[in-house]
Design a protein around this nucleic acid. Structure first.
Length: 183
DNA sequence: CGGTTTTGACCGGCGC
DNA sequence: GCGCCGGTCAAAACCG
């Protein structure tokens, strides 16, 4: 599996979200059921201070691998039902982004398959799935009640394909970053 | 006309 | 066992 830079939300909706990311506090963690203990409501910023490092993206990747929950994921069977052996919890990681828009276009194509209201949160949570064939990556987007300027995006799984949208995504920007960053 | 969104139903896990 | 809660399905509506 290649490293997939789905970590980076950016909006192609014409809104200026880019500066936000650079300045704001996005939080990355590979969350699991276990890890979600604090829950978004109370643990705002209760995460590890991983963002203190200068490299914006590498932190996320590192953090992710640290948790070791990362294994390629898929090996999904598209059988109608997943049998009980599907206990393995997939690696998930979330980050917050300060943005006015809910739709954070990261360059992949997503199809919305659900929306639910969650407790302690007056905003609904939206569920998306990657439309690429064989790619079972899911993500959910949720806005915080506490601060409605914060959008929490949670990714689950890894993409087994390249970003589809060549323009206006963060991939090449990331590459640039990695190229130009001495570290 | 095909892909996506919407939205209520359905289902499984968990706590009481 | 039951009800709450979070996640998914699926049919119809919607939109280019």
């Amino acid at each position: 599996m290649e490293n997939c830079q789905m970590f980076f939300p950016c909006s192609s909706t014409g809104k200026s979200v880019y500066p936000v990311m650079t300045t704001t506090d996005y939080i990355a963690n590979s969350s699991d059921h276990v890890f979600s203990h604090g829950d978004q409501s109370s643990s705002s910023g209760g995460f590890l201070g991983l963002k203190q490092n200068s490299g914006p993206n590498t932190d996320i990747v590192k953090n992710d691998s640290i948790n070791g929950a990362f294994h390629g994921s898929e090996s999904e069977e598209k059988s109608s039902k997943m049998k009980g052996e599907k206990k393995i919890k997939k690696p998930r990681f979330a980050f917050q982004t300060r943005s006015q828009v809910d739709i954070l276009d990261d360059g992949y194509r997503w199809r919305k398959y659900g929306q639910k209201a969650v407790k302690d949160n007056k905003f609904p949570r939206s569920y998306y799935r990657c439309t690429h064939e064989g790619c079972n990556v899911k993500k959910q987007v949720q806005r915080l009640t506490k601060d409605e300027g914060i959008v929490v995006t949670t990714y689950e799984g890894m993409h087994n394909h390249r970003i589809e949208k060549p323009t206006d995504n963060f991939e090449h920007i990331l590459n640039q970053l990695q190229i130009y960053t001495p570290f």
